[in-house]
Computed example of a mutant assay.
Amino acid sequence: MTRAPEEFEVPVPGGGLAVLRWPADAPDAPVVVALHGITANGLSWARVAHHLAGRVTLVAPDLRGRGRSGRLPGPYGIAAHADDTAALVDALGLGPVVLTGHSMGAFTAALTAVRHPHLPAALLLVDGGVGFPVPAAVDPDALITSVIGPAMRRLSMTFPDRDAYRAFWRGHPAFADSWSPWADAYIQRDLVGTEPELRSSCALEAVRADGVDQLREEVSGAVHRLPGPAVLLWAERGLMDEPQGLYDEQRLAAAGLDPRLVRTRPVPGTNHYTILVGDEGARAVARHLLAAADVPGPGEPATVPSR
């Protein structure tokens, strides 16, 4: 595994936002700010950090209501995460950064770019960020529950010890063939409390609010209002490793993306989780981040400049 990240807090409304940082080998290297999914935490980016191999600095917060930012109060919502991200960049004195996000984090990254257009030098969306119209008759809370119901149910569960939580996740279809020390460290960071009543750090209220928020046009439509170009990486398979992923060529065509603004790229052999925490997925994400930062990989020339 790569070296352990630094951990610190930055001030945001209501308290301190917990942040992980994997420093680059060179002090003047580009910076990537990486935003996690709806029930995840910043350590979900550890395997990507491994493949970045110190060529850029990777900064990954635990978003409000998750991980070690779990006690930050509401109001929740994607706009709150976007403004927390901007506060993080300002607190660290960073210039324009490469901005990326996975799942809900991709929606947050897109809205951050819209609300704070000075912030991103480049934008990479990972299996998220592109929304679809919701019929008026559909209850948003019911729709979110149908999509992430298993994840939300986990938030109400307790576990007698860390091995039990590990066993829960190892039995998850998305992780069945790709368990690793990175995945284990990421899921263990989620636990709070004491044995025999360990539970997820994620605030259910935050997860519900953020999930419903992704259906609002301000958030789901942010990808159509980006201040500059972006790349979307999408997984072939879904949250439970089912054959239908969140996106496919037909769904993306129906989304009406401007190809001059958003380029889409499949990542074969990945599901919604392994596109980030699996080896091949993390390698692909790292490769695109390095290209966005105009930093060559091992033995590769720089090819894709940031804006």
Rank of each mutant, 00 (worst) to 15 (best):
residue 242 E to M: 03
residue 165 Y to W: 14
residue 193 G to K: 03
residue 244 Q to C: 10
residue 170 R to P: 07
residue 256 G to C: 02
residue 255 A to T: 00
residue 222 A to P: 08
residue 242 E to G: 12
residue 227 P to C: 09
residue 157 M to W: 04
residue 246 L to W: 13
residue 269 G to W: 07
residue 260 R to G: 14
residue 176 A to R: 14
residue 234 W to L: 11
residue 258 D to N: 08
residue 209 A to W: 00
residue 201 S to I: 02
residue 170 R to E: 11
residue 232 L to G: 01
residue 168 F to E: 14
residue 233 L to W: 10
residue 184 D to R: 14
residue 273 Y to P: 10
residue 168 F to Q: 07
residue 229 P to C: 03
residue 192 V to Y: 01
residue 256 G to H: 00
residue 259 P to F: 03
residue 265 R to H: 14
residue 168 F to T: 14
residue 266 P to D: 01
residue 165 Y to N: 11
residue 188 Q to C: 02
residue 209 A to D: 08
residue 244 Q to S: 11
residue 261 L to S: 07
residue 166 R to N: 04
residue 194 T to I: 07
residue 268 P to Y: 07
residue 209 A to M: 04
residue 184 D to Q: 15
residue 228 G to T: 13
residue 196 P to F: 03
residue 272 H to T: 09
residue 202 C to F: 00
residue 242 E to L: 02
residue 177 D to I: 07
residue 203 A to G: 15
residue 179 W to Q: 03
residue 187 I to F: 14
residue 243 P to A: 14
residue 180 S to Y: 11
residue 262 V to W: 05
residue 230 A to F: 07
residue 156 S to I: 04
residue 249 E to T: 15
residue 180 S to W: 09
residue 153 R to L: 14
residue 241 D to Q: 07
residue 162 R to K: 11
residue 263 R to C: 12
residue 266 P to M: 03
residue 219 V to G: 01
residue 200 S to W: 01
residue 194 T to W: 05
residue 225 R to G: 05
residue 195 E to C: 08
residue 260 R to T: 12
residue 242 E to Y: 05
residue 271 N to G: 05
residue 182 W to I: 07
residue 196 P to V: 06
residue 160 P to Q: 02
residue 248 D to H: 06
residue 224 H to D: 09
residue 164 A to L: 00
residue 255 A to C: 04
residue 182 W to S: 13
residue 274 T to P: 05
residue 184 D to F: 08
residue 170 R to G: 04
residue 216 R to I: 11
residue 160 P to N: 04
residue 226 L to H: 04
residue 181 P to V: 08
residue 195 E to A: 13
residue 230 A to W: 05
residue 270 T to A: 06
residue 171 G to K: 06
residue 223 V to T: 06
